[in-house]
Computed example of a mutant assay.
Amino acid sequence: MLQVLVSRKIAVAESICSFELCSLNGEPLPPFTAGAHIDVQTPAGATRQYSLCNHPEERHRYMIGVLKDPQSRGGSQAMHEQVEQGQTLTISEPRNLFPLAADGKRHLLFAGGIGITPMLAMAYELSQRGVDFELHYSFRTQASAAFLDVLAEAPLARHVRLHDNAAATQLDAATVLAAPTPGTHLYVCGPSGFMNYLLSTAASQGWPAEQTHREFFAAAPIEHDGDQPFEVELASSGQTFHIPADRSVFEVLDEAGIEIETSCEQGICGACITRVLQGTPDHRDQFMTDKEHAVNDRFTPCCSRAKTPRLVLDL
């Protein structure tokens, strides 16, 4: 974990603030790649994940954008109302679960609302590398759209397509995603409805799963009616744990002192993914693809359960 200084806080759109974070001693911050995020310990006590939106070559600062969510469980509200310039925050080093495809010849970036944050860093990197890309940014109104001033400037402007849902420029995903070609990769980030629209359209247009990349900011509601207890066995020790119907694998193992890396605890970040050696998972996450789920060799202990009476985990 790192201690950083909030060197600047500004409103960049309706209910969205950007925060510039710098090291306390002036030393360069750990490097990051486009699509990376950091965990931020908020004043409310909650840890939240925020994508880095500045140029990945910048080592003197991290930039994040935070939407004040009306359904906030405390994290985004605390960032808006309690964090001010000059304060210090505790953050993690950057981690990238949403990277650019190394072999991509063309990249289509689709951002909805606050989903522009990882796409902005991607656009900076792709522009510098001279790689073919388009950035499609959809938003409810001009007032709710963040970083429009940055997107309107060189070198990004010629790659940007703005889609104002309150005007006549709404995104026609079927047209943009028609006829996928080898080497072209699709990236989607934003509200669940926006992402489902893009991903379902891509699937109907024949986009291969390996050319489609997404990052959810919030988990879809999970139906818990009918959840059943099951057992988890740890392969390294043979220990067996009972998982009640109303508790997650992560909660039970964490209480027993078994360390599993976790971050979002909602099945959207992939930090806790664990190998399954025996048994069939009941996948509840939104991080892995349907193809990855079908293999049934990994699962997310923060939210997923079991279809079989026991899972043997590579722990």
Rank of each mutant, 00 (worst) to 15 (best):
T184Y: 05
A203Y: 06
P281N: 01
C302D: 00
R95D: 03
L277F: 04
F216N: 12
G257H: 07
L253W: 00
C269L: 04
A152M: 10
H283Y: 01
E210I: 12
C272V: 01
M119I: 12
L313N: 01
G270T: 07
E27F: 07
L277T: 08
R8G: 10
A101H: 11
M195I: 07
D172Q: 15
G190A: 04
H136E: 00
M119S: 02
W207K: 03
F32S: 11
G86W: 03
Q142W: 13
A146D: 06
D227P: 04
A78M: 00
L2M: 15
G130V: 00
N54R: 11
A44F: 11
L148N: 06
M63F: 06
S92M: 03
E20F: 07
S51Q: 09
L198I: 12
T308S: 05
R275A: 13
G226Q: 13
E81S: 14
G113T: 00
T141C: 02
L100S: 01
Y197G: 06
A174E: 15
P30T: 03
A11Y: 11
A34E: 10
A218H: 13
L100H: 02
Q71L: 12
T169N: 14
Y187T: 02
Q266C: 08
G86I: 02
Y137A: 01
G183K: 00
A294V: 11
G279M: 08
A271K: 11
A219M: 04
S72T: 06
S72E: 06
Q205G: 07
L100P: 00
E259H: 15
D149N: 12
P70R: 03
C272W: 02
A235V: 09
V40D: 08
A202P: 05
D69V: 05
F110M: 13
P28D: 01
S92L: 08
F299V: 01
G270R: 00
M79T: 02
R305K: 05
S144C: 04
N296R: 12
R140I: 08
N96E: 00
R284Q: 09
I16H: 10
E261S: 15
E210S: 14
T175M: 11
P191N: 08
Q82N: 10
L2A: 09
T33I: 15
C303H: 01
A157S: 12
A46T: 13
F98P: 00
V295A: 12
E259Q: 11
P56I: 02
K105N: 14
N54L: 04
H185C: 05
T42W: 09
S204Y: 04
P208L: 06
M79A: 01
E14H: 14
T175N: 13
V4L: 15
G183E: 01
R95K: 14
A146E: 09
V6N: 10
E215K: 03
E125W: 08
D246Y: 08
G74L: 02
I38R: 05
S18C: 12
V150W: 08
F230Y: 15
A11H: 13
A174V: 13
Q278S: 11
A152F: 08
W207C: 11
L277S: 04
